[in-house]
Every structure is written in C-alpha cells, then in structure tokens.
C-alpha cells in the first residue's frame, strides 16, 4: 500500500452548447440523442485525439493488439461512453430506463447482519444509475465520490428533482469526508464507494489486465473500521438497452489473508480488479476511465 497524489479532477469534456443540444433532444427521447451522438463520437475521435488517447491504450490492452486512436473500436468506445451519459441524464430526468437490480436481494441479505454494506462500484456501464437506485433502499444510503461527480449529481438533482437520490459525499481534499460514510454504515446503511479512480491517499498496486495499476483502498478501510461487509457491484448496459445491477462477490472484513491492513487491502483490491477484468470481458466498451490508468 502506497500513498501518492496525482492531479486529476474527474471532470469530463463537453461544452455547455453541446449539453444543451442533448438535453433538448432528450425531451423527445433517447433515440434522437443517440442519433446526434453518432456524429459527436466521430468528431471526438477525429479532432480530440489527445483527450481520447487513453481509450486507445485501454482498448489495446483489453483486445491484446494495437488499436489505433482512429478505428472502429475507438469509435465504439466513445459512442458507448456518450450513450452512458445520455442514459444517465434520461434516468435523472425521470425517464423510463429499464433496470434489473439483481444486487438488491444480496445487499438486503448482508444488511440482516446489522453492520451495513460497503458497495464497491466502478466507472463501468451505468455507475451513476446504480448510485441513483440506492435511494430506493429502505435504509440510510450514501455515495462517496470525487467532487466533480458530486457536482454532476447535485446539478441533476437541482435541475430535475424527479428522483430521490442518496446522500452524496465528496471526498476531494477532505480527509474527514469518510466520516459521513462511517455514520451511515453504523446505522446499518449502504455506502457506495468507487474503487477504481485513484485521486490521492493510500492505494494498492495490483495486477489488472496484465499490468500493474493503482486502486484506492479507502473503501476497504471503511469496511474494516465499521465491520460492514463488502459487496463488489457492477451496473452494465445490456444489448436491449436495459441496465443490470449485480454483485460479483461479497467479502467479510478482515477475512482475507494478511496480518496488516496494508496486506489485506492489496488482497481486497486484487479481488476487485479481477472482477472488473471478468466484467470487461463481456462488456469491453463500457470502461469509462479515460486517464492514464496503468503504472508506467
């Protein structure tokens, strides 16, 4: 387990005019917005190569061959990312987005133990939709994320107010933000923590798709300190356009080998990275981390 700060805000690209166009089309439905996205994804692939460079690196890793920045795979990845943004805007504006929450039964089973649940999520598929669905659970809930994600959800909430949302806890620059998560877990609630985006603080370097990558370990510290169980959760978009929320595995705190938190957190992070790799095998274009992910 190491500690190193990197500079990355978590913000996505996209201008106000572009967002307004998509918001207007979404009033008609998701299909017209997807139609506009056909051109926008092509524009980004051809003219925003610097911003899209990490997509090409990721695709080369996942497909095991060189994927150039201008290719049908790069286009499919950018289109998939844009579509996920359209879907989450539609979801937060109250549109009917079909969701199959297979995770709920497993998480409710965990809550029967009375110690709460840390749902470790990742920026795959409809992660924001899964966060939104947490508010439907009959217990205290919260989503811990970086400030930019917090701002996005808050804006959605302010603009639409058509869905109940879980408590948003922004962690950037505030080491004590996690206390809000601890409070929720102590009331036998569910706290969702993104386990893939490393911003600052302690991390574990583990094998991910054949290379070493950094994964934050704060989710596992939260589970160990509160006694909450860990559920690794994914929300993927299916071919039908619906979203499936599922638990890939549950882990009891301190059940993994290792005398110290440093050793155990590496084991937690490795289990999580292995589950991401398995999920991406079936949904390779639903990975939405567009920044240098692997260690040099």
């Amino acid at each position: 387990m190491e500690n190193k700060n990197i500079r990355w805000s978590g913000k996505s690209y996209g201008g106000r005019f572009g967002n307004a166009c998509f918001a207007f089309l979404l009033r008609i439905g998701r299909v017209p917005a997807y139609a506009l996205l056909v051109f926008v994804a092509a524009f980004f692939m051809l003219f925003r190569r610097k911003q899209c460079a990490e997509s090409s690196k990721y695709l080369s890793v996942i497909f095991g061959k060189n994927i150039p920045p201008v290719s049908k795979q790069s286009y499919a990845h950018l289109f998939s990312f844009g579509r996920s943004i359209i879907d989450k805007q539609a979801y937060f504006s109250g549109a009917n987005v079909e969701i199959d929450d297979k995770a709920r039964a497993e998480i409710e089973k965990i809550l029967e133990k009375g110690k709460g649940c840390v749902a470790v999520s990742s920026h795959i598929g409809g992660w924001a939709i899964a966060g939104g669905e947490l508010a439907q659970y009959p217990c205290p809930t919260g989503v811990i994320g970086v400030s930019a994600e917090h701002e996005y959800i808050s804006k959605m909430e302010e603009a639409h107010r058509r869905r109940n949302l879980p408590k948003m806890i922004a962690t950037a620059d505030d080491p004590f933000a996690m206390l809000a998560g601890l409070g929720i877990l102590r009331k036998n609630g569910v706290v969702s923590v993104h386990g893939d985006r490393y911003i600052a603080g302690k991390f574990a370097s583990v094998d991910f798709l054949g290379k070493k990558a950094r994964f934050p370990v704060s989710a596992y510290a939260l589970a160990e300190k509160s006694g909450a169980s860990i559920a690794i959760v994914f929300c993927t978009r299916e071919k039908s356009g619906s979203y499936t929320i599922s638990v890939s595995r549950t882990i009891e705190p301190s059940s993994l080998p290792g005398a110290s938190f440093q050793e155990r957190s590496s084991a937690y992070a490795q289990a999580y990275a292995d589950d991401i790799a398995k999920t991406l095998k079936y949904h390779p274009y639903q990975w939405y981390n567009f920044y240098p992910f692997w260690l040099q």
């Binding site: 080491p175 601890l182 603080g201 704060s218 300190k225």
Partner: peptide, 22 residues
C-alpha cells in the same frame, strides 16, 4: 495524513478514550 489515517484516528479515539467524533 490522508482519509484512511483519519478513519483510523477517529476509531482510535473512540476505543481508547470513549469519545465519538462524527
């Protein structure tokens, strides 16, 4: 110190001094 350390210290104060900081 970072957020993981913060959690550790808050729990240490609870355990050793019986004081909750939430």
């Amino acid at each position: 110190l970072d957020s993981v350390d913060a959690l550790e210290l808050v729990v240490m104060i609870e355990k050793d001094f019986g004081i909750t900081v939430d």
